[in-house]
Write a protein that binds this DNA or RNA. Structure first.
Lengths: 118, 118
DNA sequence: GCCTTATTCAACTCAATGGTTAAGTTACGC
DNA sequence: GCGTAACTTAACCATTGAGTTGAATAAGGC
């Protein structure tokens, strides 16, 4: 159980993985498509998807030869509850969230992949 | 900015550090007192406090020869907003949070330190 | 059946983490 | 001002993590 939190938080601690989650928010995607905007090997993305899956943040279903990735936002529930215990953060400020997406979405995935952050 | 999230999530990914945060929820504490319930060296705890400070999750103020640690829950705001973007997790279920505390508070810090999780 | 596409696996490198012990530093207390 | 309490720093070690390349596997398409 605390291990769940370990895995979820560790998974979220990587900007590439957060960017992937944000992408999947829009729609389910095949591994190759997830990898496309990033400046790193497919194998690397495959690994990232592995840790996201292990953390329960996404699920992967193989249909034919393509493996579809699907967001599983419920995995965030425990982590969210844990965090909320430290204070009341005003219920979803969508504007703030959009700002994050602007920074972390595929448009700039290149930047994420190259420099990590600034 | 995305680096902030990196640091916050990475800091939260360790059970010892989460336990420390939970302890500080009750009251400000000196480094030695923070370390007391754990089965690891003071130096190790000092490092953990360093990463929590770097992430902005706590602040440390030296008064005399003791350094007081204080929770800074605001640092969780951005992370919380980010997570909330993935779904509406019902506003603070205090019971659920208490369950986490039971597992991660100092009473069982020994267990946390020894086995990490089960 | 064969080429190709989609994805993973294996082996490796390099850097970062989490821990250790031992040696500093700084501030009380007497 | 000396001894000690409260921390931090340094040097080290073992493990993990993020990335690479290259080979393996699996499923289509024709």
């Amino acid at each position: 159980m605390t291990q769940d939190l370990d895995q979820v938080f560790a998974a979220l601690a990587d900007p590439t993985r957060r960017a992937i989650l944000a992408m999947l928010l829009e729609d389910d995607m095949a591994v190759t498509d997830v990898a496309e905007p990033f400046e790193m090997s497919l194998a690397a993305i495959s690994k990232h998807l592995g840790v996201l899956t292990a953390a329960g943040l996404i699920s992967q279903e193989k249909r034919g030869r393509v493996k579809w990735c699907k967001l599983e936002p419920d995995a965030l529930r425990n982590a969210s509850v844990w965090m909320q215990g430290f204070g009341q953060f005003e219920p979803v400020n969508l504007d703030a969230f959009e700002r994050f997406l602007e920074i972390e979405l595929p448009e700039t995935a290149e930047g994420v992949a190259r420099s990590g952050s600034e």
